Amino acid sequence: MTTPSHRRRSRPRRHTALLSAVAVAAVALVVSLAVAFRPGGGGTADVQDAAKPVSGARASASPTPGAPSASGSPTPSASAASPTARASASRSATASAASSAAARAKATTSTATAPRTSASGSLAGRIRPGVTYRGVATSYDVGNGDGACSYGPTSDVMTAAMNTADYETSKACGAFVAVHAGGKSITVRITNECPAPCQAGQLDLSQQAFAKLAPLSAGRIQITWNLLSPSTSDTISIRYKTGSTQYWCGIQALGHRNPLARLEVRTGGGWKQLERTAYNYFLSEQGTGCGAAIRLTDIYGEQLTIEGIAVKPDAVQSTSAQFTRR
C-alpha cells in the first residue's frame, strides 16, 4: 500500500515534468517565430505549398491582398495587373488608338476609294450598277438644254429626262446611261425629269438622241438601259446657288463621272450631310458649313474632299477632283 509520503513526493515530479515541457515548447515557439519573421523566411511545407502557382495561373500573380511584403509595404491586390502587363496593355491600346486615328484621318481628309457596292448597295438607290433595266423611250425638244437638274443651258444634245420614280429626288442627275434598241446603242446624260405619264423604266430622250435609235415618227420604242461610269477628261466643278451667303446656301456638284449619293460640309463637330432637293442642289438652311470644305460621295462609296471653294453665288468653280472610273 502506497504511503501518503509517496503521494506527496509524486507531485513535485509531475510539476517538474510539466515545467520542462513548457520550457521546451517556449523554445520551439521562439525558434519558429524567428524563422517565420526572417526575410525570405517561412520554411514549412505549408508555406512552400502556398507559394506555388495554381494550375493555369500566371506565376507572376500578385500575393494575397493585404499581406505585408518583405519591405513592410502592402502588396498590390490580386486584381491589379503587374507593371509588365500594364505596360504591354498600354502599348497595345496606344497602337490600336493610333491605327484607328490614322484610319479616321484618311477617311475624312483624303480621297479614298471604297470597295464597290453590290447591286443591292444602299448608296446606289434605284439606279444600280450592273443592272439592266427595261422600258420605253420617247422623245422631247430639249430647247436650250436646261432641265430639272438645274445644270443650265448646254449645247450637249445627247441627254435624257428620267422618269420620276427613277429620278429619285434628283439622285439620277448627272448619271450616264447606255440605251439599247434594235441593235443600236447610245450614251446619254440625265439632265431632266420626266413626270407622269412617264413610267418606271422610261426615258424621255432628246430628239437628237432618239433619232440615233429610231425615226422620230416611231414615237415610242422598247429599250433596255444600264448605268455607265464613262471615260472622261473633265473634272468636277462646284456651284453655289443664287442668293447663297454664309447664313444660307445651296451647293451643287457638276461634271461628276458617277452619280452622287451624298454631299457633306465640314463643321466644328465633323461632317454634316446636306438635304438634296428635287432641283439638284444640297441645302444648308441655317448656313452650317457654307464656305467650308465639301465632301462628295458617289454611289460606289468613293469620297472626294474639296477645299477652298468660296461662297460665290452662281459661279462655277473648277476643281482637280474626279471619281474613279468603274
Rank of each mutant, 00 (worst) to 15 (best):
V179H: 03
V179Q: 03
H180K: 14
H180C: 02
H180T: 15
H180D: 15
H180W: 06
A181N: 09
A181I: 05
A181G: 04
A181P: 00
G182M: 06
G182A: 10
G182P: 00
G182F: 08
G182D: 10
G182H: 08
G182K: 01
G182V: 05
G183W: 03
G183Q: 05
G183C: 03
G183P: 08
G183R: 04
K184W: 07
K184L: 14
S185C: 08
S185D: 14
I186R: 10
I186E: 12
I186Q: 11
I186H: 06
I186S: 09
I186D: 12
T187E: 14
T187Y: 00
T187R: 10
T187C: 05
V188H: 01
V188R: 00
V188Q: 01
R189N: 11
R189F: 03
R189C: 07
R189I: 13
I190P: 02
I190H: 05
I190F: 10
T191C: 09
T191I: 15
T191V: 15
T191Y: 07
T191G: 12
T191D: 08
T191R: 15
N192T: 04
N192L: 06
N192G: 02
E193T: 15
E193F: 06
E193A: 14
E193N: 14
C194P: 08
C194G: 06
C194D: 07
P195Q: 05
P195I: 10
P195L: 09
P195E: 08
A196E: 14
A196P: 03
A196K: 15
A196R: 15
P197Y: 05
P197G: 10
P197D: 13
P197S: 13
P197Q: 10
P197V: 11
P197N: 11
C198M: 08
C198N: 08
C198I: 09
C198E: 05
C198D: 09
C198K: 01
Q199W: 00
A200S: 14
A200P: 08
A200E: 14
G201Y: 00
G201D: 08
G201L: 07
G201Q: 05
Q202R: 07
Q202V: 10
Q202E: 15
Q202I: 07
Q202C: 09
L203M: 12
L203A: 11
L203I: 12
L203R: 04
D204G: 07
D204T: 03
D204Y: 02
L205F: 01
L205W: 02
L205D: 00
L205S: 00
L205R: 00
L205C: 03
S206N: 07
S206H: 01
S206V: 09
S206I: 05
S206A: 14
Q207V: 06
Q207G: 13
Q207R: 13
Q207H: 06
Q208T: 15
Q208D: 15
Q208K: 13
Q208F: 11
Q208L: 12
A209C: 04
F210D: 13
F210E: 13
A211G: 02
A211K: 00
K212P: 00
K212D: 11
K212S: 12
K212V: 06
L213R: 01
L213W: 05
L213D: 06
L213I: 11
L213P: 01
L213F: 05
